[in-house]
């Protein structure tokens, strides 16, 4: 088979795998999002998170730590929380913390880096710091994008079941296409990367960190699997490897498209840029101390 044919085959498999892996989590996310929208009374959110932001951001981050969520699950929920009056900074803190910090991710990291508990500690500390940085900045800057989702189903006629279906359908149709597009872009970049690029970049300190951040963005891996890929980058420094694991759950191609679908283009760029900067700062600072 020609190299072009092999590349097309590889692209097809990677694309299909990424879409298939993401869809069940996306469906779970829109179902939970619909429950948030239809069944949870507003006063619950007010009681939990509608407090001063200085309390809401760390509380939302802590909630995220305890709730195992995939990126595809938490972004629709964040949109719905924002729509229900939860401060945007707190909703995003939850959305970022859940896939980055949940116990399953930490267990997977421990398995991938067997005998290196410091890597698990560094991942948790750096990811927590990055989420708090992002949440605090969003709160301080007063960023309050209007969620693009949710302005159609509020007044949906019918009973609770009909409202749940309408809410879930709305969120799914607004995000599923972008998940597919994100997978296509990520697969394209994966296939296009030259084979010997890694070995050439791994030796350069700053460049290695930036390269790993770039890979995390374009590979768009689930946070529960990225540690195994990270552990395979044996030519890169531990700080660069940590960067890969901290950046990926907070910002990647698929997430950027979901941020855009949920909060709009400007907010997506703001969240993405901020998350990248926060993740880089946290990974380098924590990694330099612990690794």
């Amino acid at each position: 088979m020609s190299p072009v044919g092999e590349s097309i085959d590889e692209w097809s498999t990677l694309f299909t795998a990424m879409v298939l892996q993401a869809l069940p989590f996306l469906v779970l996310g829109v179902l939970l999002s619909a429950v948030v929208a239809v069944l949870v009374p507003m006063r619950v959110w007010h009681r939990l998170l509608q407090r001063r932001t200085v309390v809401a951001v760390p509380m939302a981050t802590a909630c995220g730590v305890l709730v195992p969520g995939c990126e595809c699950t938490t972004v629709p929920i964040a949109g719905r929380l924002t729509e229900r009056g939860v401060p945007f900074a707190a909703a995003m803190s939850f959305a970022l913390a859940s896939p980055a910090l949940n116990p399953i991710v930490l267990l997977a990291t421990a398995a991938a880096f067997a005998g290196q508990p410091q890597m698990v500690v560094a991942r948790f500390a750096a990811s927590f710091l990055a989420v708090v940085i992002v949440g605090s900045y969003l709160a301080a800057a007063g960023v309050r994008p209007v969620p693009k989702s949710g302005h159609h189903h509020h007044d949906h006629p019918g009973g609770t079941a009909a409202q749940l279906i309408a809410a879930a359908r709305h969120d799914f149709t607004h995000t599923a296409g972008l998940v597919v597009a994100g997978a296509a872009i990520a697969a394209t970049i994966r296939v296009a990367l030259p084979d010997d690029l890694l070995s050439r970049l791994g030796d350069h300190g700053v460049l290695a960190v930036l390269t790993m951040a770039f890979f995390a963005i374009v590979m768009a891996l689930c946070s529960e699997s990225d540690a195994f890929i990270a552990a395979s980058f044996v030519t890169f420094s531990p700080v660069a490897v940590l960067t890969f694991m901290v950046v990926g759950p907070l910002v990647d191609l698929r997430l950027l498209l979901m941020y855009r679908a949920t909060f709009g283009t400007r907010a997506a760029f703001a969240i993405g840029g901020l998350a990248l900067a926060g993740a880089l700062a946290a990974a380098v600072s924590i990694g330099s101390v612990l690794l």
Binding site: E10, G115, L193, A231
Partner: peptide, 19 residues
């Protein structure tokens, strides 16, 4: 599409022995 093939450009060289 079929499963990944050995011809796929998986550009990693995992040190599987340590894991």
């Amino acid at each position: 599409p079929g499963p990944l093939s050995v011809s796929a450009g998986i550009a990693f060289d995992p040190d599987t022995r340590t894991r």
